[in-house]
Design a protein around this nucleic acid. Structure first.
Length: 361
DNA sequence: CACACGTGGCG
DNA sequence: TCGCCAAGTGT
């Protein structure tokens, strides 16, 4: 076999690890080069935050979380609302709910994470990818780590033409073929670094790629066409209303916030009251009080599976007691500390709009 | 298996 | 401007 295009496990892993030893990104959750194994808590936390989320978006959250909760026991001891609030803005809030459930489970076993892929896989919020990643990176296990980067790199290396997601089993089989016995954690991170910086979705930088000579897609002339993907469905639009109810108190102005149900859209997060747009094709339009209401404008927000046009209404009445007694599922929140309320981005946008309106008035 | 589930950045 | 995309998981 021609050595320059040897696609054996050792050849590809060796080339990639050599490249990684020089070009690894320095990231806050990684051990410094030459340092002892990284803290499983930090590896786990970073992996959960990085699910479907960019490195750039995660960095600040990771720093805040680890400063506030330096260990899994500390995190396990936090109140739900503290953690949900700290996660606000990062998205996919089920991750934060599972994060806490997982932390408490691990704290219950003495603060030690399971050190096998199978044991990790049983924890809340750890699926096939994260269990393999933590097992390999934190515990040095031989685990086959497959994320979107690996899917792209492997699809190109072996010219896997079938579209995702159907091609996943084939991709995994090929990934297993090139994953080394030793340094599986470094290998996984090397694949992800390669996918993030060289083997990018569009315009891959093949001239810089340590695996260029092994890559069948490069030889084919158009590596960017892979991986093929199934056509996506159109994203529908939805409408809803949210309600800004503010009152004056001796201590200052306050706004009425609710806690959303523990599952579903923005589940478990603090929010403005709304008309139920999340649970139906469009909101009911129904307000929590008879009114009068004044329109404050609209907020547009894109979710994964629909776009939302949210109309914001400001309450002009004074029957605040009805509200507090009526639902009970809310709280008056000081406007001064609104940025600490932990509102998800949609409602943070709506709040900005309301505050801009009240400044005009 | 298909779908629900956030958000921000980039070409 | 807008669709694509990011270290996926749970149901």
């Amino acid at each position: 076999m021609d050595a320059s295009s040897d696609t054996s496990r050792d050849a590809i892993a060796g080339l990639l690890l050599d490249w990684y030893d020089i070009h690894a990104r320095e990231l806050p959750w990684r051990a410094r080069p030459g340092q002892a194994a990284p803290d499983p808590y930090r590896v786990w936390l970073s992996e959960v935050m990085l699910q479907q989320t960019t490195v750039a978006a995660v960095k600040d959250y990771f720093a805040r979380f680890t400063a506030r909760w330096p260990s899994v026991e500390a995190l396990a001891g936090a109140a739900d609302e503290e953690v949900m609030g700290a996660w606000a803005g990062l998205g996919y809030y089920a991750r934060a709910r599972n994060l806490l459930a997982c932390a408490r489970e691990v704290a219950g076993r003495g603060g030690r994470f399971p050190d096998t892929e199978e044991g990790l896989r049983a924890l809340p919020g750890l699926g096939a990818y994260t269990a393999a990643a933590v097992a390999a990176i934190a515990f040095g296990r031989h685990a086959v780590v497959v994320d979107a980067n690996v899917e792209r790199v492997v699809s190109r290396l072996f010219t896997i033409e079938a579209p995702l997601p159907g091609s996943r089993p084939t991709i995994r089989a090929h990934a297993a073929t090139i994953t080394p016995e030793r340094r599986a954690g470094d290998f996984a991170q090397a694949m992800m670094d390669l996918g993030a910086t060289i083997c990018t979705p569009r315009a891959p930088r093949c001239l810089l790629c340590p695996l260029a000579a092994q890559c069948r897609a490069r030889r084919s002339g158009d590596p960017a066409r892979l991986p093929a993907k199934a056509a996506k469905k159109a994203r529908p639009s939805r409408r809803g209303r949210a309600f800004w109810i503010a009152r004056e108190t001796p201590a200052g102005e306050e706004v009425w916030l609710v806690r959303r149900p523990g599952s579903g859209m923005l589940g478990g997060m603090r929010a403005l009251p709304d008309d139920g747009w999340a649970a139906r094709a469009d909101g009911s339009g129904t307000a929590p009080l008879p009114g009068p209401w004044e329109g404050a404008g609209r907020v547009e927000h894109g979710f994964t599976h629909f776009a939302l046009e949210l109309e914001l209404s400001i309450y002009l009445g004074r029957e605040f007691e009805e509200l507090a007694e009526g639902s009970g599922a809310g709280e008056w929140w000081p406007l001064e500390r609104l940025d600490e309320a932990g509102l998800p981005t949609l409602f943070a946008k709506a709040a900005r709009l309301a505050l801009a309106e009240s400044e005009d008035a």
